[in-house]
Design a binder for these strands. Structure first.
Length: 742
DNA sequence: ATAGGGTTAG
């Protein structure tokens, strides 16, 4: 048998310059060939078993299965039970009988083999056909589109035009789908021009495709124009525009269109309700979401798995994790999106352990995970704050297929930064290919969090050098990095250049950073002036920054003013009252401190209890003030006393006065040294080998006393101590802290 | 043979 018959002619690299000509007046954009060149992907490659391994001759010789009669071949191809292994055989039969040029059979073959997931078989037969008709072109384009090989689909489309075959009403929806999935707006516009050219303005399938195309490319207004121009709308048209608004951050508009749809008496189907649910999820409209749930039941979609997945996601995101979990448990299906929705729901609502457990369960149950699963789980790991867990997750990702995914790597960078290791974050950053603005920003924020302002600034310049445009979040990171490192001048400059050079309008966070920056450096009046000149209404964070600066410099009158504003904007947050009380305490105005306490009591507010966590051998141990619940409590307190003695010998004098009345910090019980942070340090010292770095997480901010003590302890015991407080990281080493006491 | 949806990062 002539094996070389199966060896396929490779398509020679045809010139894309000779594309089917489109009259210029139909083009919304000037015609360039550049965009089309993008789709000329590398030459098609056959899988090994097909191109080079010896073909199984028994397939060829087995006439009992398929004869050489074209009708027999046709019926065997039509059969839904056609097996993958028969494709090769059928292909050979077609070639042997000289039927590979039969467009009708070739179309069937392409269709069946692409449905079986063997798109390369389809392509090989396609390439043997000297003169494909529109049906065959459609089949191969559809095959690529269904396998998410959108670039190949578009490449075939441009070749089809080179071949002079006119697309029909089936071709264009596949092509539009490919354009919107990549997405490639320029190419989509060209296709739009061709739709005019060939006269498909009234084809509802094609027009729906256009609505989805523009929606996916972020051109929601254009999508709306196409939608409004439709005189024959199907439920798909409505769903496309509704989900378009939802995807483009306009859930309210999406919902408005949904109610219009109801007014037109269009009966929603399952998929349309999925889009509506997403819009309600985005506005966290739990009540409306519930009403959709009842709508789902009324319409008889309650057993529609896809809708149940959306409902689970809705409940999970709106904080009803228990309801979400019960839906999840009822379904018990191994659908990635369902599991992802549950995991991310847990992570968003602070149930990190549950999220991580679900991830582990997926692995043990052999349920396929994807990059979304990974990103959500990493988010949960970042919340836990355990470096050991972070290492495990990183290791898992690094061995997985999504190790180069930008989303995943961004999450990893953030996770490491939050778990105390900005250096590991950097190594993830360095190994990430094709870094986008989010990756760079995450790393800049990470450096800021650890008080490494200069490195943040260097990275910002490297980013510019790499040709990546910064956005508003990049500047939040940069400004807060300047803030944590006391780089007032730099921060001030970046704030101004952000608008001047990059045209980025500052938002509340930027203003708050600048107020913080000025305030901490003692420029209180300037900070106040700055707030007064703000073009937008100052948010609570801005006044809060001024208040805490007033606390540092004991500026009572300005602080009281700021506090007034803060209370107006956010009356039920205990933290603000604590700030004011601290201000009074720092000015030794004890009666005012007492008044604030009364105010808090009247409003039923109480300050958060302080605690510290330390991770020993992968287990997190929590301590609060004077905690004696640990089984090794005796040893811990012995160690504490030892530390206390050493501190005294080294000449450490605690500042009792300010601490006594300082509500923000844990209240003094027996001695200063049993603050939760110190208990954690003592436990860490007796539980780890000499020289091990101690990593501690606090829920509040570090108190001045503990901060000074920890600095000294790091020197006395020759340990590096990393403390994550409510605000940032402190790296204590050899008697110094990375925050520079700022 | 056609189209629409749900889950992810700073």
């Amino acid at each position: 048998m002539a094996l070389n018959l199966v060896v396929v002619r490779r398509i020679s690299n045809c010139s894309l310059l000779s594309l089917y000509p489109i009259p210029a007046k139909f083009l919304p954009l000037p015609l360039t060939t550049a965009t089309l060149f993008e789709f000329d992907v590398s030459p098609f490659k056959f899988p090994k078993q097909y191109s080079s391994s010896p073909l199984h001759l028994d397939y060829y010789d087995d006439d009992s299965l398929y004869g050489s009669d074209p009708d027999m071949l046709y019926s065997s191809l039509l059969d839904n039970s056609t097996h993958k292994k028969h494709l090769l055989q059928i292909h050979a039969r077609l070639v042997v009988s000289g039927l590979q040029e039969n467009n009708f059979l070739a179309t069937k073959f392409v269709h069946v083999s692409s449905n079986l997931g063997e798109i390369h078989y389809a392509r090989s037969l396609f390439d043997e056909n000297p003169d494909p008709d529109v049906f065959l072109w459609n089949a191969i384009i559809r095959g690529y589109s269904r396998h998410s090989l959108y670039r190949d689909a578009l490449q075939m489309y441009s070749r089809m035009q080179v071949a002079g075959v006119i697309p029909d009403s089936f071709t264009l929806p596949y092509v539009l789908k490919a354009c919107s999935s990549l997405p490639v707006l320029e190419m989509g516009r060209r296709v739009h021009a061709q739709i005019f050219r060939y006269g498909f303005e009234s084809d509802v399938f094609v027009q729906n495709g256009l609505v989805a195309l523009y929606a996916k490319c972020g051109e929601i207004n254009r999508a709306r124009i196409v939608f409004d121009g439709l005189y024959d709308r199907t439920i798909v048209s409505w769903t496309s525009i509704i989900s378009g608004y939802a995807q483009n951050g306009q859930p309210l508009e999406a919902l408005k269109i949904f109610s219009q749809m109801r007014q037109f008496n269009v009966k929603p189907d399952a998929i349309s309700l999925v889009s509506v649910l997403r819009a309600y999820t985005d506005v966290e409209g739990l009540e409306q979401g519930k009403s959709i749930h009842s709508c789902v039941i009324k319409l008889g979609f309650e057993f529609e798995p896809d809708l149940l997945i959306s409902l689970t996601a809705m409940y999970a995101k709106c904080g009803e994790v228990i309801v979400a979990k019960s839906l999840f448990d009822q379904m018990e299906i191994p659908n990635v999106i369902l599991w992802n929705a549950m995991i991310s729901g847990y992570a968003k609502n602070g149930c990190a352990d549950e999220a991580i457990n679900l991830f582990r369960k997926m692995i043990s149950k052999n349920i396929r995970t994807d990059s979304v699963t990974a990103s959500s789980t990493i988010l949960a790991c970042a919340q836990v704050g355990s470096l050991e867990l972070a290492r495990w997750m990183d290791d898992y990702i690094n061995r997985s297929e999504y190790r180069n995914d930008v989303f995943v790597n961004t999450a990893l960078i953030d996770m490491y930064a939050k778990c105390g290791s900005v250096d590991f974050a950097r190594s993830v950053f360095d190994r990430t290919p094709d870094k986008d603005v989010v990756v760079w920003s995450a790393m800049i924020v990470g450096y800021g969090l650890h008080g490494r302002g200069h490195e943040a600034i260097n990275l910002f310049h490297a980013m510019k050098y790499a040709g990546v445009e910064p956005n508003d979040v990049t500047f939040v990171g940069l400004l807060s990095a300047c803030n944590h490192s006391g780089l007032v001048q730099k921060g001030w400059e970046y704030f101004h250049c952000m608008k001047k050079e990059y045209g980025i309008e500052p938002r509340h966070q930027h203003y708050a950073c600048v107020v913080d920056l000025l305030g901490r450096a003692g420029y209180l009046d300037e900070a106040y002036e700055f707030i007064m000149k703000m073009p937008i209404e100052p948010a609570v964070t801005v006044w809060g920054a001024l208040l805490s600066a007033c606390k540092i410099y004991r500026h009572v009158t300005l602080g009281e003013y700021a506090a007034e504003r803060v209370f107006m904007l956010d009356p039920l947050n205990a933290g603000h009252y604590v700030q004011l009380s601290n201000l009074y305490a720092s000015a030794r105005m004890w009666d005012c401190v007492a008044k604030v306490r009364v105010m808090m009591r009247e409003k039923g507010l109480s300050k958060d209890l302080g605690y510290s966590l330390i991770e020993i051998n992968g287990k997190l141990q929590a301590f609060h003030v004077g905690d004696k619940s640990h089984p090794k409590s005796k040893e811990i307190f012995e160690e504490l006393e030892k530390l206390e003695r050493k501190l005294k010998e080294a000449g450490f004098v605690p500042d009792t006065d300010s601490v006594l009345h300082d509500l923000n910090y844990e209240e003094k019980e027996v001695t200063l040294c049993n603050h939760s942070e110190r208990l954690a340090i003592a436990y860490g010292l007796i539980s780890t080998p000499l020289g091990t770095t101690l990593r501690i997480t606090k829920n509040l901010r570090a108190c001045v006393n503990c901060h000074s003590a920890t600095k000294l302890i790091s020197k006395l015991v020759s340990r590096e101590i990393v403390v994550r407080d409510a605000n940032r990281f402190h790296h204590f080493k050899d008697g110094f802290c990375s925050c520079g006491d700022y």
